[in-house]
Amino acid sequence: MSTTPRLSPTDPVSLPVPGKAPASRRPRVAARVRHVALPLGSLLLFLLLWQLLAASGTWSETLVPPPSKVWDAFIDVSTTHDGTRGYNGTTLIEHLGISLRRIALGAGMGIAAGVVFGLLMGTVGWVRSLFEPWITFLRTLPPLAYFSLLIIWLGINEEPKVTLLAVAAFPPVAVSTTTAVAAVPKSLIEAARALGASRWDVVRDVVAPSALPETLTGIRLAVGVAYSSLVAAELVNGLPGIGGMVKDAANYNNTPVVLVGIIAIGVSGLIIDGLLLRLERVAVPWRGRA
């Protein structure tokens, strides 16, 4: 006999209200609103405090220009005005594009070398013993410490800039990959070998996928280090380039242009980091769930 309860005509029935989200969706909608509103609110608060500080007259406009002057500088370096194109004949987007190309070349080479060395050091003990102290030594050096040496060796054109960014990006990836490879469960490796996998098969099918999440974290760190080294890389003969623009404007106390360059570097860095986060979610969707 069926025991399924039946509704009588007098029982209340819950119907969806048009225009009103179900209760289960409300927390997600609220979380999304907070995710957008909090950063926007903090930005507006920062701009308000900046304007109040500039209007107080505590410091001169050379030191703390108001946001309106920085905006005017942004328009000037992004367009052609009074017969002058951008800054030093190059627009802001072109300066930024040239610097991003340098970062792509330099950080790309550093990341590739870091992954290879990380896999080698994580799987071959004597390779780790040989190279790990040198990588640690390199990781502790600030970029300016060896940039002058790179200029002596490679000149003042593109080579020292790209090399500096490559050297700066290499250690984070190498260290994170080495640590991740060394942490791969031995049981997985032994199981793969028991099934007849060669050493290359173990590295390709077991070690590399297991190390991928930490390697991607190292890549994010490497890109951040490369960005922080950008102005140093463009100290010499950096124009055109966003770091070179910042350095040249600082030589003339052109603070609005300096701030425009700093903001451009920061915003582009945020965008690239967001893209890397998106790549991480696609490449390793299991991270944080197992």
Rank of each mutant, 00 (worst) to 15 (best):
F147R: 15
T179Q: 13
E159T: 15
W126H: 07
V181A: 04
L212T: 10
G118I: 10
A232F: 08
R139F: 14
G125D: 10
V203F: 06
S176Q: 13
T179G: 14
P171G: 00
A194K: 09
S148I: 13
N157Q: 13
L120F: 05
F117M: 12
A222T: 00
G108K: 04
A145C: 12
G110W: 07
I189M: 09
L212G: 12
I152Y: 15
A145M: 12
E214Y: 08
V223A: 00
T179R: 15
W126K: 04
T217N: 12
P143T: 05
E132R: 07
A211C: 09
R139G: 15
L149G: 11
T177N: 04
T123E: 03
W153A: 10
L154E: 03
T217G: 13
W200N: 00
T179M: 14
L154V: 09
V223K: 04
G118E: 01
L149R: 09
P172R: 01
A208P: 10
A107M: 02
F131I: 00
L221I: 12
G155R: 10
P133Y: 04
G122I: 00
P185E: 06
A197I: 13
A191M: 11
L150F: 05
L195H: 13
A191R: 11
G114Y: 02
A169T: 13
V206Y: 13
G218I: 02
F147H: 14
A168M: 06
I135C: 00
G110S: 11
Y227P: 13
G114P: 05
L221S: 14
A197E: 06
V203Y: 05
P185D: 06
S228Q: 03
T179V: 13
A174E: 03
L154A: 08
S148P: 14
A180C: 08
V203A: 03
A232G: 12
G155L: 00
L165F: 01
I152V: 13
P133V: 05
V231E: 12
L120C: 05
T215S: 06
K161G: 02
M121H: 04
V206D: 10
E190H: 06
P209L: 03
G108P: 02
A197V: 13
A180W: 05
I151K: 01
V115F: 14
F170I: 01
S176D: 09
L165R: 11
R128H: 11
G218Y: 07
A112K: 10
A192Y: 15
F137W: 11
I151C: 07
A174D: 02
W126V: 15
I219Y: 06
A112W: 04
P142D: 06
A180I: 01
M109H: 04
T123V: 08
R220W: 00
F170D: 01
